[in-house]
Design a protein around this nucleic acid. Sequence first.
DNA 1: ATAAATTTTAGAGTTAACTCCAAGTCAAGA
DNA 2: TCTTGACTTGGAGTTAACTCTAAAATTTAT
Lengths: 141, 141
Amino acid sequence: MGYSIGEVAKKTGLTTHTLRYYEKEGLLPFVHKSGSGLRVFSDNDLGWLAMIECLKDTGMPLKGIKQYIDWFSAGDATLPQRLEMFQKHKAKIQEQIKQYQNHLKKIDFKIKLYKKAVELGNLNLAMQDEEIEAQRQKIYK
Amino acid sequence: MGYSIGEVAKKTGLTTHTLRYYEKEGLLPFVHKSGSGLRVFSDNDLGWLAMIECLKDTGMPLKGIKQYIDWFSAGDATLPQRLEMFQKHKAKIQEQIKQYQNHLKKIDFKIKLYKKAVELGNLNLAMQDEEIEAQRQKIYK
DNA sequence: ATAAATTTTAGAGTTAACTCCAAGTCAAGA
DNA sequence: TCTTGACTTGGAGTTAACTCTAAAATTTAT
């Protein structure tokens, strides 16, 4: 029914230190304490941790995540703010993905270039290769 | 022919502080100095800055970028290392994109949920909606 | 019952990547 | 020439997100 901090650490891949830090920062306001003061995590808390991971991994700072949790705790009056937050964050993620895909093209070019350079044992020679120069132009134009 | 640090700051969106910091960290070993000690950036330096931005924005720490630059400076003997670096980094970026797309599904679910919740003025009611519950199952199963 | 492992707290320390400051030098326009 | 703005350095300060320490309490295993 409940999980110790160590169990949650194993489940999530976070350390116990990090979990306590998150709680201190207000990211886990729903975790209960046992009579003797030990944290007891519920499945609902694991759900929150999954959401925290999702937002954190997509670039939201802990402060932003805390804002969301504070809005949640404030109840239905903050539903519009929460919707707006997710919509804006979605746009940011999509922008990120686009940028990543663009950067990937540049990396692909470098891989092609360095494959040829390794083959020839010389970077300058590889840069003079027609096909490689053609691809360079396509990307950096 | 050459750009001052302020001009480069405008071109790149970095601050002059950051540019000096990058140089201090060994990321700009090709920038020249004028007789009186002013930095003079070339178009080639701008190319390096673009590559630095690409690697940094895709999650490579400055130390990793410096390693690449050091390998470059060491000459053709390090071509295989550089190729390997780009190949590994490409794999990491692709993994990132996949993860982002997955996270995006969760965010999309939240948007759907909160749209309904705003409509109803109540989050719990929205969670009981059939269509929303169906989508939740699809994602969190 | 006892030993070993886990958890508690407050608070200090770390790392990456900036960001700023002071005091002095350099450059461009009126 | 004078002033104003940009640039120089070394070094200190900041921020986010951990990461660790120590001493005490609790829980689990034998």
